[in-house]
């Protein structure tokens, strides 16, 4: 039974929320607008580091620090988008992945007085924790985690409502049209470049919100949390849920974390002492990696038998085949 509760816990924990937000941002980029942003980790990193460094090194209060960090995400989107969004889609993909790696290397090697290299930044959560209304922890979460989870999921709900409203507006219609054929949109008098930039900024800002939640949950920020895995896992979650559906990043992310933890606990239980799997086949030290293989396999099967994702519309796929 604790197998399930463990998995459920992780599926709703702060780290899962940060991925949910990152995936919602990617949904705007890739799902609705067709922009291949492989640098979502950089947006989360700029959010997390921006908040942490402003609070720790510059004594900025929590709320202004959050706002300034979001401005940082907007600037990052401009840096990525301004030179590339006039070009073909693949150029953006290459630039974003490079920018994300550059950002991570800067955080891990430069400005050590602020970023503190691989050790990262700590001690920025006091203001946030002071606001905690909970007296004690509950349902297996600590008092602190409970507060982060409450705020985090509220934030997710707000962001989803906003995205929902935007995507059924004429603004959202322009984005979806750009995904289908930019030249057609251009021929109707719409400034495609500006819309793509707006989409990149919006999705990036939502990714930075993910960075906030992850950092506040963990109480620290390290560069290694924002390597390329971060982006690709968020992409996986999005595709799992089905791109261009409002709820899909949430369901995809929750399901992904559930599966990952479930596999981890299960593998630990059936290996080592008391398990039935012999040590030469699989020992407990290896389970952390093997679970990724198994989850990967499950995802492959899902994509083969349900390529549109959980929420996707099969009719839309049929159109692609034409």
């Amino acid at each position: 039974m604790d197998l399930l509760t463990n998995a459920l816990h992780d599926a709703f924990a702060p780290i899962a929320i940060s991925y949910v937000l990152a995936a919602i941002g990617l949904n705007i980029h890739y799902g609705y607008t067709g922009l291949l942003n492989f640098g979502q980790a950089a947006f989360a990193a700029v959010g997390a580091y921006g908040m942490a460094v402003l609070i720790v090194s510059f004594d900025v209060p929590l709320v202004p620090a959050l706002l300034l960090a979001l401005v940082g995400a907007v600037l990052l989107a401009l840096v990525m988008g301004l030179p590339t969004l006039r070009l073909r889609a693949d150029y953006l993909a290459i630039v974003t992945i490079a920018v994300a790696e550059i950002a991570r290397l800067i955080f891990s090697t430069s400005f050590k007085q602020y970023f503190n290299a691989r050790d990262g930044v700590q001690g920025f959560t006091a203001d946030f924790r002071d606001l905690n209304p909970y007296g004690e922890g509950a349902i297996g979460f600590s008092r602190n985690d409970l507060w982060v989870i409450t705020v985090g999921w509220l934030l997710v709900a707000l962001v989803l409502a906003f995205v929902f409203l935007l995507m059924r507006s004429p603004w959202g219609r322009v984005l979806k049209s750009i995904r289908e054929d930019e030249d057609a949109v251009r021929s109707l008098g719409k400034n495609v470049y500006s819309y793509k930039l707006q989409a990149l900024i919006l999705g990036g800002v939502i990714g930075a919100l993910g960075g906030f939640v992850g950092a506040l949950g963990k109480g620290s920020v390290q560069p290694d949390s924002f390597n390329t895995d971060f982006t690709f896992i968020a992409f996986t979650m999005l595709i799992l849920g089905g791109a261009a559906r409002v709820m899909s990043p949430v369901v995809g992310a929750v399901l992904f974390w559930f599966l990952l933890t479930f596999m981890d606990v299960l593998l630990k239980r059936i290996t080592g002492d008391g398990g039935f799997v012999p040590g030469w086949l699989l020992n407990p030290d290896q389970t952390g990696n093997v679970r990724f293989m198994i989850v990967g396999l499950v995802l492959m099967l899902l994509m083969i038998f349900r390529p549109q994702g959980i929420f996707g519309d099969k009719k839309e796929l049929a159109i692609d085949a034409r």
């Binding site: 219609r173 979806k176 054929d181 159109i319």
Partner: peptide
């Protein structure tokens, strides 16, 4: 160049000019 994954009516609506709803803040 029709927009395949939009309905016929949505394709048409996209053509209209000066749409307030096409601004981010008004969306």
């Amino acid at each position: 160049k029709v927009l395949s994954k939009l309905t016929v009516l949505e394709n048409m609506r996209l053509g209209a000019t000066s749409q307030l709803g096409e601004r981010f803040w008004a969306g």
